[in-house]
Design a protein around this nucleic acid. Structure first.
Lengths: 235, 235
DNA sequence: TCGTGTCATTGACGATCGTCAATTTATCCG
DNA sequence: CGGATAAATTGACGATCGTCAATGACACGA
């Protein structure tokens, strides 16, 4: 097997770096598909892909700055993430085989390395190490500051505590006498850690929820009145 | 190629579900390594792995509840994440080939499905689709509520804004007359979105940072005095 | 039973945040 | 240049949060 062309990769930072896409031609030789890694320059404000688009490929930012923005039904929009050089865009849509959940737009003059969906699949199937790099990149992006910033305080602490308690009840709650209740496996301190607040603040959040009647607390026990379960979550 | 044993997988939820680990024996037949997926039961409080441990494998929670906790140098600890049934633990250490950053301990009587590192590598190299599932699972966990909860308000908004500005300067700032400065490609509204606060609050955060002198703002321009750069970030 | 230590709650106070409103500044276009 | 529109800032006020401190509840061992 012989590679006929030494491909000049447009991006030295992305997870596909060093990979080539080839197809067999004859006599065991292969032809490199040079159009697999398409260098694409974006002007300020130019859209890389639209929200809801199914043109699934994987993009990695070579330089510049890309904003991933979600447009809501009421016409407003929220900036969800910034993609800095070296980061990957569209991985979720690629892996899920679904539509993009955000619009990607250049905030600065930018260059991205585009890997078409078919070619990305080709690479990934031929070399699992690439997918390992993709998955690792994905894990690492979770740790970056701006990822943690996202969605931090958009919902109130009361809502977040409610969500956490409901999730716990959902997994481990028991029906006892018309109530869904459970023994909380977490200390107040642990709950406070998860919400990122002080234990005293958490205690007051618990107190407010108790007073509003949707949750009942007895020490480390928490319960939900059965009739409330179908009524949904209060604000 | 013939699989000699139909392996009974202990966990119907994890990303490895449906996969078998086999090795060739003779005549093109393969032997399933039944010990690849080890069902492990944990009592309340039992430790699955310690922080800093390099016993890298991939675990998926079959039932129960696992707490991932980081221990700090001063003896305190912080609950970083809860792993519910169906979720994966240790993926980061596995992909990075590094040590676990957290201690994993059962909060309830739990069962996990253990895939040894060697076997996980074996599966992943033999079937890229598994790694796709792993990566997808990783992407999806970012979206879950409790992942968003983590690290939300642990650092003050002022610190988070400082980190965001520094990251932007780092990537796109220019040295102009003893100052590192840049044209902010984001509106105030965008900055507020990223921090999860209201635009008015962001305006006041900017104002405080400006008054403290570490950053200078002029409309959409932001700068850092050169002498401050080596001094580090103020609180 | 009685300490004792840990955890949870409550109070007080200053700081910050969300909301509404008004004002100032910036930007765009004729 | 001037006017219109949008963006950013500032003020005011009530609600919430962080911090320090005190109190109450609970488990555990002597």
């Amino acid at each position: 097997m012989q590679v006929m062309e030494n491909f000049n990769h447009p991006c030295g930072k992305c997870a596909f770096y060093g990979e080539s896409v080839w197809q067999p031609v004859a006599d065991g030789a292969v032809s490199v598909l040079t159009r697999s890694f398409v260098r694409k320059d974006l002007e300020v404000g130019q859209v890389l892909f639209d929200q809801g688009s199914t043109n699934r490929g994987v993009f990695c930012v070579s330089r510049g700055l890309i904003a991933l923005r979600t447009h809501h039904a009421d016409g407003s929009s929220t900036l969800m993430r910034l993609a800095y050089p070296g980061e990957i865009i569209g991985l979720r849509a690629f892996l899920r085989d679904g539509a993009h959940q955000t619009e990607a737009r250049a905030l600065l003059g930018s260059r991205v390395c585009t890997v078409a969906r078919r070619d990305a699949n080709h690479i990934v199937q031929g070399n699992p190490a690439v997918l390992t790099r993709l998955a690792l990149r994905c894990v690492e992006e979770v740790d970056t500051n701006h990822e943690r910033i996202i969605g931090a305080a958009t919902t109130s602490n009361k809502q977040r505590l409610t969500g956490l308690l409901l999730r716990l009840m959902e997994n481990h709650g028991e029906r006892i006498g018309g109530q869904l209740r459970m023994q909380l496996p977490l200390s107040r301190r642990d709950l406070a850690d998860l919400l990122g607040v002080q234990p005293e603040t958490l205690s007051r959040l618990v107190g407010r929820l108790k007073k509003e009647g949707f949750f009942s607390f007895a020490g480390r026990e928490v319960g939900i009145p059965a009739q409330s379960l179908s009524a949904g979550v209060r604000s």
